[in-house]
């Protein structure tokens, strides 16, 4: 009896490890697929025929059409963060540091991360859904049989536009978040305007802003790569499109948050190394 239970337990432990290994193996294969898909797509952008028109269209969709939502979230994030920081510093009589701390937090962390999350939800979801529906309605096959390389025509302009649009949107987010912070600190909390700007200018240096912009470019590459890959490889009908969109957006968001931590450390190490 005891021996039977022991065997059963061993069997389930084996099964658990096997499942874990298979999941890990599948993940590694998929990561490899995503990278080769991305590398090929990015490379095709620099070979004829050049897809400048499609690139501009994607810049308009990813960049221009995200400005409103980025401005809106940026302004309120700037105000909310300022208020929290102000309350914290008030306890230690250091409210004059509210401006620079908010500026650094926005430029280095919240700017790129929130912009990445907002744009990946909006544009990434649309990319996955668009490519997915093109796949299931045979539009991608139609491109192929017309002698048009679909990755070059559909994927490369989207990825490059995301890589370029995201840092620009991050810059917009940083700017409006600081306007929001200024509005709250100076107009509502009646802090000293000169001290606010003086301390901010003293503490915030261009390297902090660059850090955010670099992160923005990486997040742009990550979300567009994941979402185009999911959409391009959609299987099945409408349900497949829904799955591709859902998985693309969720994975993009998770990856942005995880990558942010590693990028932060990597950039810190780089700055120390070059100092």
């Amino acid at each position: 009896m005891v021996e039977q239970i022991r065997q059963k337990v061993n069997h389930y432990i084996d099964l658990a490890f096997l499942t874990l290994w298979q999941t890990f193996e599948g993940f590694i294969y998929e990561v490899g697929d995503v990278f080769s898909f991305g590398a090929y797509s990015l490379k095709t952008f620099f070979s004829k025929p050049y897809r400048f028109k499609e690139f501009v269209q994607q810049m308009e969709f990813i960049g221009n059409k995200s400005i409103f939502i980025v401005v809106l979230t940026g302004t309120f994030t700037g105000m909310a963060l300022s208020f929290q920081v102000y309350l914290g510093f008030k306890m230690v009589n250091a409210t004059s540091l509210t401006g620079p701390i908010v500026a650094m937090g926005i430029a280095r962390e919240l700017g790129p991360v929130l912009t990445g999350l907002i744009v990946s939800a909006r544009a990434g979801g649309a990319m996955a859904a668009n490519l997915g529906s093109m796949r299931v309605s045979e539009q991608i096959d139609a491109l192929e049989v017309m002698g048009v390389e679909p990755q070059e025509y559909l994927v490369a302009p989207r990825i490059w536009a995301s890589i370029i649009a995201l840092p620009l949107l991050t810059g917009v987010f940083d700017f409006v978040a600081m306007i929001g912070s200024y509005f709250l600190c100076i107009r509502v909390l009646e802090m000293d305007e000169a001290i606010f700007w003086d301390k901010t200018a003293l503490w915030l240096n261009p390297a902090h802003i660059n850090e955010g912009l670099i992160k923005g470019a990486v997040f742009g590459a990550v979300f567009s790569l994941i979402c185009t890959y999911r959409g391009f490889n959609t299987k099945g009908g409408a349900r497949g499109v829904g799955d591709a969109t859902n998985r693309g957006v969720v994975l993009s968001m998770v990856m942005i948050i995880i990558l942010d931590f590693f990028l932060m450390n990597l950039i810190e190490v780089y700055y120390k190394w070059t100092a």
Partner: peptide
């Protein structure tokens, strides 16, 4: 080679 083909798909596969 595919430029020599013209294909009419089952549901036309027009770019929407």
């Amino acid at each position: 080679m595919r430029k020599h083909f013209g294909v009419l798909f089952q549901y036309a596969a027009l770019f929407d």
